[in-house]
Amino acid sequence: MKLEDKIAVVTGVSRGIGLSTVEMLLEHGMKVAGWGRTAPEVQHENFEFVACDVRRADSVQMAYKHTVEHFGGHVAVLVNNAGLGRSSKLEDQSLEDWHLMFDTNVNGLFYCTRLVIAGMKEMGEGHIINISSIAGTTGIEEMSAYCATKHAVRGISHSLYKEVRDYGVKVTCIYPGSVQTNFFDNIDSVTVNENMMRPEDIASTIVHCLESHPNYHHVDIEVRPLMPKGRKRV
């Protein structure tokens, strides 16, 4: 897809992968709406921050309405990045955190995605990028709820791409390993470090997918740090 002057929506834009993705899409000439609860430090004529809580369908609906009216066209790219994780053994998992993760990681993705599909079909092109996790392909001890949400993201992505592919619309699911973001703020067992991937690495992968030939479809992309424990000495 040619990105210049196309409209993109990125969720969870205050920091990390979302912020890096916004900055990179702007560099490629896109008009970007950043949906989130906290505005990022982005000053650009083609950027519009839209206050939005993806856990609420009405909030997402208002954000979508504002976006298409502000930019005057259909959304060509949606990056479902908003997400969070809480660590707990299943038997100790609080109902509050369980619902928080599903409301954000799964329901939020659904609320956002359902609104952009019709416009993409009408244009005959579009790309939905869903940020899952390696937790979406495997189980992780004391992360069962988070893994469940990211497995759901994978299932939605695989089903949806088969529904929309014949309209020229792509759906790509990305499964990152550890990234230097605030994701780990609420996970005591992990400390962010320089051996993790950078947010801009994920953003560059997203752009690579978006710019691919119309008949070339990245379905699943798993990315990990090469040396998660640092370089070994000979």
Rank of each mutant, 00 (worst) to 15 (best):
P214G: 00
E48D: 09
G72N: 07
I131C: 00
F183L: 15
K2R: 14
R224V: 03
L160T: 08
G34D: 09
I174T: 01
D201I: 00
P214T: 00
F102A: 10
Y111W: 15
R114V: 12
H213C: 01
M62D: 12
V77S: 13
V153M: 07
G177V: 00
V192S: 05
K232N: 12
A76K: 11
V68G: 05
A145S: 13
Y64T: 08
K150F: 12
L95T: 12
V164E: 11
P40L: 10
H151N: 05
H44P: 02
V77T: 14
N193D: 12
L109N: 04
R198F: 02
T149I: 12
E122F: 06
V116P: 06
F47V: 06
E194Q: 15
E163C: 07
Q93E: 14
Q180L: 00
N193G: 03
R154H: 11
L160W: 08
I128S: 06
T181V: 03
D97L: 02
E122D: 13
S20R: 01
S159D: 09
L78N: 07
A8P: 09
L100F: 06
C209K: 00
V153Y: 03
A8L: 08
R231H: 11
E125C: 03
I117S: 10
V164I: 13
N186L: 09
A39L: 04
P176W: 00
E163I: 05
G126T: 05
V106A: 10
V75Y: 05
V164G: 10
H44C: 05
V190T: 13
I129M: 02
V106R: 06
L25R: 08
A63V: 08
T113A: 15
G73N: 06
R114L: 07
T104M: 07
K6Q: 15
V223N: 00
A82F: 04
D188Y: 04
D97F: 02
G139S: 13
S14E: 11
D201T: 06
M123R: 14
E4K: 15
S132W: 00
I156N: 04
A33H: 08
G136M: 11
V116M: 08
V50S: 05
I156D: 03
T172K: 06
V179A: 00
L226S: 13
C147E: 07
H213G: 01
G12N: 07
R231L: 14
E194M: 04
H66T: 13
V77N: 09
S189T: 14
T11F: 03
G16T: 02
H74Q: 13
G136F: 08
A51H: 13
F110R: 07
I128L: 07
G168R: 03
M1P: 03
N46Q: 14
I174K: 01
S94H: 06
K2H: 11
C173E: 11
R231Y: 09
G29M: 14
N107G: 03
G126N: 05
S20L: 01
S87W: 04
E23C: 02
E194P: 03
L160C: 10
I17E: 01
M196A: 04
A63I: 09
V32A: 12
V169Y: 06
R86L: 10
E211V: 12
L19R: 15
T205G: 00
I174F: 03
M197G: 04
H99G: 02
Q61K: 13
